[in-house]
Amino acid sequence: MLPDRNDAVARWRADGRPVAGYVGADVPVELLTAAGLLPLRLTGSPDEDASAGRERLGGGLDAVACSVLTRLLEGAYGHLDVLVLSRDCEASLRLFYVLREIRRVEPSIALPPLHLVDVLHLPHHTTTRYVLAKVRQFRSWLEAVAGQRIGDDDLAAAIAAHDRVRGLLREVGTHRGERRLTGTEALSLVSVTTAMPVDEAEKLVQEVLSTLPGGEPRPGRPVYLTGSSHDTPAVYQALEDAGRLIVGEDHDWGDLLAVADVGAPTELALAERYQFAGPAAPRASIAERAAHTAAALRERGAESLLSYVRRHDDAPPWDFPAQREAAGVPATLVDRQEYGSIDLAGVPR
């Protein structure tokens, strides 16, 4: 039984320590940890009314961003000392601009200091220099709002700790290929690790790995999931209740979150890790996505490919034809789905 995401945050706050809410996998969480902040990745909630966020963000935007904004406006995440967003997709970028404007014109709404980390993903040295400048800018901003210097030793320790967690999560992925845990369990585990101190996350994943059941593999037809990201397990649970077993995925709440380590205790290594952090749908070429998806699918032994796409998430459908061709297994696109749900009628048995 995994702990609730809110438990570790509540314990951290009870000790009077600061919390950093963040949106997007391009935020260098190592710097948050090194600054003495708890990195809390913000999730939406498909079961809650998100009309307040939708009204401010406008139509035609992924429902996750609308939900996150609504929850921020309603104080659902508790007190946040800072709020950091990345430019991992158009929805995150628009969310940042709207939050910045709210802070400017509506001071009665209590929002914390806000920062955008603009990580680009082109494979060029000039891009690396740009991302490095943004990493250094983020470090300086954190030092200013925290009122203390982030030492090189603190950064090195944080990098090493987060790399250890990523390595353990890759082990979890290996066991998924062996069908020793479900996709719902794996997704829930990743989610919990993004809401607790990195040392506690490391212990939790070690405990999960040490207690994985042996014997018969988990039941279900093994399927590899692509398309939109999933910050809640609702769609995974629906698919697995219907007889599928999600053995892997290529979104950044799942396998992509742990795809690469920083490896060295430097700002440059940190910048390169996030620049080359994996081919997510909003920021990679169609060819890169297809090659990555096909290789990961084969590694996990999936028998089919399923592309699940939420309404107003425009990038994944462009990838699907090339992914289908590269995968070499039966492939299905389930498009225009509502946040947190799936029309199983469109998924082959």
Results as ranks from 00 to 15, higher is better:
126 T>E: 15
82 V>H: 01
45 S>I: 01
36 G>M: 09
79 H>C: 07
112 P>H: 05
69 L>R: 05
64 V>Q: 14
36 G>E: 07
80 L>A: 04
92 S>Y: 02
54 R>C: 05
68 V>K: 07
87 R>A: 13
29 V>F: 11
90 E>N: 11
64 V>M: 15
71 R>F: 14
34 A>P: 04
70 T>P: 01
119 V>R: 02
31 L>F: 08
49 D>F: 13
27 V>K: 05
75 G>E: 07
60 G>I: 07
49 D>S: 06
45 S>F: 11
106 E>H: 12
44 G>I: 02
66 C>K: 09
114 L>F: 08
110 A>M: 03
77 Y>S: 04
73 L>V: 00
44 G>K: 07
58 G>Q: 09
47 D>R: 13
47 D>S: 15
78 G>Y: 07
57 L>R: 08
101 E>G: 02
36 G>R: 09
40 L>H: 12
126 T>C: 10
120 L>D: 09
110 A>I: 05
48 E>C: 08
108 S>R: 13
79 H>F: 04
35 A>H: 03
30 E>S: 10
31 L>Y: 11
89 C>D: 13
101 E>R: 06
49 D>C: 07
70 T>C: 02
99 L>P: 00
53 G>D: 05
63 A>D: 15
38 L>D: 06
97 Y>C: 06
48 E>M: 11
102 I>Y: 08
42 L>D: 03
62 D>W: 13
51 S>L: 15
47 D>V: 13
43 T>R: 14
97 Y>N: 09
95 L>V: 00
116 L>S: 03
65 A>I: 11
119 V>L: 09
92 S>Q: 14
125 H>N: 12
62 D>K: 10
57 L>Q: 09
29 V>K: 13
93 L>S: 04
72 L>K: 01
127 T>V: 12
106 E>M: 10
32 L>K: 10
101 E>Q: 12
54 R>Y: 07
114 L>Y: 06
102 I>L: 14
124 H>N: 02
64 V>T: 14
72 L>A: 09
76 A>I: 06
36 G>T: 03
114 L>D: 05
121 H>T: 07
68 V>E: 07
116 L>A: 03
112 P>C: 06
50 A>L: 10
63 A>C: 10
109 I>F: 09
51 S>F: 13
95 L>P: 00
76 A>V: 08
86 S>I: 06
127 T>P: 02
82 V>M: 04
92 S>V: 08
39 P>R: 08
116 L>E: 06
41 R>P: 02
66 C>D: 15
97 Y>M: 05
35 A>F: 01
122 L>C: 12
106 E>G: 00
122 L>F: 15
41 R>W: 13
119 V>F: 00
43 T>Y: 15
120 L>M: 10
60 G>W: 04
67 S>M: 05
120 L>Q: 12
47 D>P: 10
45 S>M: 07
122 L>G: 15
107 P>M: 05
57 L>M: 15
